[in-house]
Simulated scan of single mutants.
Amino acid sequence: MAGGSRRRDRGRPAPGTPRPCPCGQPASYDECCGRFHRGAATAPTAELLMRSRYSAFAVGDADYLRRTWAAEHRPARVQLDPRMRWTGLDVLAVTGGSAFHQDGGVEFRAHYVLDGAPGELHEHSRFVRENGDWVYLDARA
């Protein structure tokens, strides 16, 4: 390249820059959902669990998805589609799901690209507590 200058890919942060969290919160991935994925903390609300599960889909963490599924509905294995690229999350409504609740719901729209075509998943997920931790129960489209 002339003059030794290099153009940086606009889709990637500069080396050493913390990567943003896929869930859309302003914190870095490591400070936001990454800490839940690593097991350093548990999500304190149903909304944060839903955001962390979306991020798990985005970063390909099937183990976290399985671990945060309610025991009564937990699949033996979670397989992710490697062709699916998750591109954004919109939280539309939250009911219950705080430190003072035993259940909660989150309505959201998750955006993705599959085989070059954009799409979205609109869902209302239900969450409950198991042993004090929030877990995903089920969903309605």
Results as ranks from 00 to 15, higher is better:
Met1Ala: 13
Gly4His: 13
Gly4Arg: 11
Gly4Leu: 14
Gly4Tyr: 04
Ser5Asn: 10
Ser5Asp: 13
Arg8Leu: 15
Asp9Gly: 02
Gly11Leu: 07
Arg12Leu: 15
Pro13Ser: 07
Pro13Asp: 09
Ala14Leu: 15
Ala14Asp: 14
Ala14Ser: 15
Pro15Ala: 12
Gly16Leu: 06
Thr17Gly: 07
Thr17Met: 13
Pro18Lys: 04
Pro18Ser: 11
Pro18Met: 03
Pro18Thr: 03
Arg19Asn: 05
Pro20His: 11
Gly24Arg: 11
Gln25Ile: 09
Gln25Lys: 14
Pro26Tyr: 10
Ala27Trp: 12
Ser28Leu: 08
Tyr29Gly: 06
Tyr29Asp: 07
Asp30Asn: 11
Glu31Arg: 13
Cys32Tyr: 06
Cys33Asp: 08
Phe36His: 15
Arg38Ala: 15
Ala40Cys: 00
Ala40Ser: 12
Ala41Met: 09
Thr42Ile: 02
Thr42His: 10
Ala43Cys: 09
Thr45Trp: 01
Arg51Asn: 08
Ser52Gln: 07
Arg53Asn: 03
Arg53Thr: 00
Tyr54Gln: 10
Tyr54Met: 09
Ser55Cys: 05
Ala56Glu: 06
Val59Asn: 02
Asp61Trp: 04
Ala62Glu: 04
Ala62Asn: 01
Ala62Gln: 00
Ala62Tyr: 01
Asp63Leu: 11
Tyr64Ser: 05
Arg67Ile: 00
Arg67Tyr: 04
Thr68Met: 02
Trp69Val: 02
Trp69Cys: 12
Ala70Val: 03
Ala70Pro: 03
Ala71Asn: 11
Arg74Tyr: 05
Pro75Gln: 02
Pro75His: 01
Arg77Tyr: 06
Leu80Glu: 04
Leu80Val: 03
Asp81Pro: 03
Pro82Trp: 05
Pro82Cys: 05
Pro82Tyr: 05
Arg85Asp: 13
Trp86Val: 01
Thr87Asn: 12
Gly88Asn: 12
Gly88Glu: 11
Leu89Glu: 08
Leu89Asn: 09
Leu89Ala: 08
Leu89Asp: 05
Asp90Gln: 14
Asp90Val: 10
Leu92Thr: 09
Leu92Arg: 15
Ala93Val: 04
Gly96His: 02
Gly96Trp: 03
Gly96Ser: 09
Ser98Glu: 03
Ala99Leu: 09
Phe100His: 13
His101Thr: 05
His101Glu: 13
Gln102Ala: 14
Gln102Asn: 14
Val106Arg: 02
Val106Thr: 04
Glu107Lys: 15
Phe108Ile: 08
Phe108Trp: 05
Ala110Asn: 14
Ala110Asp: 12
Ala110Phe: 14
His111Asn: 08
Tyr112Ile: 03
Tyr112Arg: 07
Tyr112Ala: 09
Val113Tyr: 08
Leu114Cys: 08
Leu114Arg: 15
Leu114Thr: 01
Asp115Met: 07
Gly116Phe: 06
Ala117Asn: 10
Gly119Thr: 08
Gly119Ala: 10
Glu120Val: 10
Glu120Tyr: 10
Leu121Val: 13
Leu121His: 14
His122Tyr: 05
His124Ala: 12
Ser125Gln: 06
Val128Pro: 06
Arg129Met: 03
Arg129Glu: 03
Glu130Gly: 05
Asn131Ser: 07
Asn131Ala: 14
Asn131Glu: 12
Gly132Cys: 07
Asp133Val: 02
Asp133Cys: 07
Trp134Leu: 06
Val135Glu: 02
Val135Lys: 06
Leu137Gln: 13
Leu137Asp: 09
Leu137Tyr: 04
Ala139His: 07
Ala139Lys: 12
Arg140Gln: 13
Arg140Glu: 15
Ala141Ser: 11
